[in-house]
Simulated assay, not measured.
Amino acid sequence: MIQLQNVSKTFVTGKNKIEALNDVSLEIQKGEIFGVIGYSGAGKSTLIRCVNLLEHPTSGYVFVDGTDIGGLGSNDLRKLRRKIGMIFQGYNLLETANVYDNIAIPLKLAGVPKKVIKERAAKYLEIVGLQDRSQAFPSQLSGGQKQRVAIARALAHEPEVLLSDEATSALDPATTDSILELLLKVNRELGITIFLITHELNVIQRICDRVAVMEKGRIIEQGSVVDIFTKPREPLTKQFVRNESRFKIPDPLLKELLSTGELVNLTFLGESAKDPALATLARKFDVLPSIIAGGIDQLKDQSIGNLLVHLKGETGKIRDAVDFLQSEHIIVEEVIG
């Protein structure tokens, strides 16, 4: 659906050059939710704005549904942009217009008939759960409601792709959850491809199918959310995952545990979560496992279990126990003080 091939973008300010994107390539499949994560300054916003040519790449190619959009004339580009909706962190609503008009005015400017505008506004306000707020003004809405209006406005053009530029970063956790559920609903019920950027890993894990990690204008790692979450390769990716899903242990307790055995993070996925592997260790290997902490990460379509476990026993037997856990398709990561 969307392909970026060797895309670079350089901004020139006076005598300075800022390389915002450096040889970025990725592909987003039709109907999926694809996320890009990275810290501020990584180039995420520039990347997503290249998809609809709000930013023109310095070099490289952007294809949307097989069309090289860099070669389009202004009229064809305008038509293509109607297939690409976009929502922003700041909502971008007209403060002097009510909810209905915020949706209707862009459609009117695009030449959509009045009857169709009325039908679409009603349809998409119902989808976002604001059918009773059509006459309210933005100043009368909460942040979450404003973002729902912005989503309805984007959907009213009936796009094939929805771009989300940090759409939840200004919202509280509960409101963020509701907006993520809405985006899932839009993707599943309307079949719209969603491309989002964020610095929040919980957004990626909740709704994305695949993810790319950006650092200093480059894609440093990409893959399925499950693979990135359970087998991160790059230091930055590991930092994101560990900050979100690993357990923090006070130093005195960590030293005590490491002095009396080994400490391991265990990740359970799919069938590995159903087998009583830890119960086998004491009986089969004479290794005593003690669960220090545990939790579950909910991804879009499945759960990942995490346990912090202390293994007490002879070194050789602990090694055999770890080998056994790995043979049971449990991901084992040793904790080092």
Rank of each mutant, 00 (worst) to 15 (best):
S303R: 09
G191M: 11
R319Q: 14
E271G: 03
E19P: 00
L182R: 08
A273N: 07
R206I: 02
E95W: 13
E334L: 07
K146R: 15
T67Q: 14
G337E: 12
Q239S: 15
K114M: 06
D68H: 06
S290V: 09
D323L: 11
K231I: 00
D320L: 14
R81L: 06
R246I: 01
D251S: 12
L253F: 10
V322M: 10
G223T: 08
T10W: 01
K83T: 08
I192M: 07
M1I: 01
A20R: 02
E158K: 07
I69L: 04
D323K: 14
N306K: 13
G31C: 05
K115W: 04
Q3G: 01
E271A: 14
V36C: 15
E234Y: 11
T260F: 01
I204D: 02
V309P: 10
V161T: 08
Y100C: 03
A110G: 01
I331S: 11
L94R: 00
V161E: 06
N243T: 12
I48G: 03
A122C: 04
S272Y: 10
S134Y: 13
L53V: 00
A174K: 15
A167S: 11
S8T: 14
L93W: 12
R49F: 07
E334V: 15
G337P: 03
V36Q: 04
V51D: 04
P252N: 10
G223L: 09
T193C: 05
E334Y: 10
R49L: 06
A282I: 06
I28H: 13
V99P: 08
L77M: 14
R206W: 00
V213S: 09
T168R: 04
K108W: 03
L47A: 05
R233I: 07
K185D: 06
G295P: 04
